[in-house]
Design a protein around this nucleic acid. Structure first.
Lengths: 193, 193, 193, 193
DNA sequence: CATGAATGAGCATTCATTCAT
DNA sequence: GATGAATGAATGCTCATTCAT
């Protein structure tokens, strides 16, 4: 029981550290946050971090997982009450969800997600860990959209479009929201046909 | 004239260094390549690099520009002979181009592009430089697609989708190429309506 | 208590490093000593120095403080037993102290003090730190002479003269010690009037 | 004649470079000015500087000489019309000169002089060059004051006091100008007795 | 003589990781 | 388990000096 409690504690503490790390990565950037930063933010000694995570990369992977979890919750919340058999209605619902997400979604999270992902490109073992988590969570997120579309690839492609647009927006490509919404609606309808 | 020759030389050497740097970033990663690496790759002393670029960031910006140039050429080549007034034909052409690109495009280039872009997120001055270049080139790339669609936002959204899919693919999300092509065709047609 | 011990240790180690640094500055010069030199002299890794001092400048400030401390002790020792109400006697005592100091004082210390001070001229934050320390210690040193003169400005001006003469001597201006002593005596008497 | 003209040109150019260097040292500090800075300020290529001066140290020595020249002119101007046989009048004149100097003298010049001098401490050959120049010019400066005092050591000691006070002032030691003037007058009179 | 590109030794600083307590 | 001092390899950047043109 002491053991049980301890291990629970340890898991919770790992989670706590992961989330603080995620905050730090968001604030300072993947390339600029230090183990020292994490230790201070968690009110823990630098050495202690190594009792919870093998090394900095393991900590990044954990933070990445926390990020995916956060995203999953966000999308689940948005898509929970939105199933419909009627095509037109589905299109409306999706377009609406999409609009909401595009306006409310903390795009910095997506940016961070990609930042971590892309930085792993040159470290095979790192990339492997992240890829696994990424696929798992993205499949879950997409499965929620499948409910609307009844087609996996459609959901996937719209999600891809969504990601691309968020990036473009972040880096200054100008887009008219109205035109996009109109097009999204068209696409949803035509893909469902 | 000596001046003219010199400045031409200098510009060419800058370009040469930029391209070597791009290779290095691709091979070792943005976070892992060093000025030493660049110097060795260019067969030049480390100090000399600083006669051409103010600092490492300036060099990265130059490499990024070289990358955008490379991408522009790639897309221009693919889209050069592809205008048509007939809608169906346009759809076919775009779908075909898209397929070609998706199969032949060195997706690592896009990954690299995004890696550089996203890493700049926490350095305002860096981000500013990159954003400017990014917008300029992306507009040029998109303008080629506009010729096919006669609509800017459509081209933009398809390009966004394209980018998103390349990322997904790189990180292991499984996609059926046939389904995607079918959907692309549908979307092109419906957007053109 | 562990904390207390630690902080005492840390303070002592800082002092130790400061003094070694001062030695190095004296030996190699402010412009020529390196952090590497300090690390080797202290039998410590270069990185460790940065656990004690934020940067090289902070270390220089600490060394400067150690130097002022050393000077203060020197002057206090010389002036400790030298109060008198009789004017003539005061003049004798001061003249004697002055002679002793001029012959025994390690003028290189004063040279070092000024070297550090003057080099800070172009670094405002550095100058601020040094100026504060300088004023504090010089006031203490002067206050010992005030006891002899009962006048602050007199002490100050004689001290200034002393500093100037030490510099002149160091740089080869020839001075007759006897004449100087005679003049000092005159000045002390006339200032006291 | 071409040769003659050239050598005149060369001497003048050296002087020009020396003075520009002095300006740079004043502006950026001895430790921070670069050969590049000098080249730019003189509108000359970096390589050319080495046709005029063997190395950076030689340039510093030349700048130092230019500084001493400047100081000499300053003092000569101030002391030119100030000889008198009457003691009281001499005291008045000296006190007045002293006041003028203390208020009008660009103390940064003296600071610079000492900065250069003290930084040479650890480079024997450098120190030798500077010391020689320093002694020569200081003797000339002092000889002007001797005219007032008819005593070399008196002039020397007052000058030393002056230098010391300028330093103190620069580094924040507070001094009452009135008290100083009063004391100077006393000292001048007593030393002349 | 003038140039300025090239050099390369040199240095401050950072930071993940370790380990004795 | 927790700590934090110590480490030391790694790296961006500077700058006096040289030399081919």
């Amino acid at each position: 029981m002491a053991n049980y409690m301890d291990s629970v504690d340890k898991i919770e503490k790992k989670k706590y550290i992961s989330e603080k790390t995620l905050e730090l990565i968001s604030k300072k950037g993947l390339a600029n946050f230090t183990m020292e930063d994490v230790a201070v933010a968690c009110n823990v000694s630098k050495g202690s971090l190594y009792n919870y995570f093998k090394n900095k990369n393991a900590l990044i992977v954990a933070a990445f997982t926390a990020l995916m979890e956060k995203m999953l919750h966000f999308f689940e919340e948005k898509t929970s009450d939105s199933t419909s058999d009627c095509l037109e209605k589905s299109a409306d619902i999706y377009t609406q969800i999409y609009s909401e997400i595009l306006s409310s979604f903390p795009s910095s999270d997506l940016l961070r997600l990609l930042e971590i992902l892309l930085n792993s490109t040159h470290d095979p073992s790192m990339m492997q860990s992240l890829t696994k988590t990424f696929k798992d969570y993205y499949n879950k997120i997409l499965s929620n959209f499948e409910k609307i579309f009844k087609s996996k690839s459609s959901a996937l492609m719209l999600q891809a479009m969504f990601d691309g647009l968020v990036i473009y927006k972040a880096f200054g490509v100008e887009i008219s929201d109205e035109e996009i919404q109109e097009n999204v609606r068209k696409i949803v309808l035509c893909l469902a046909k």
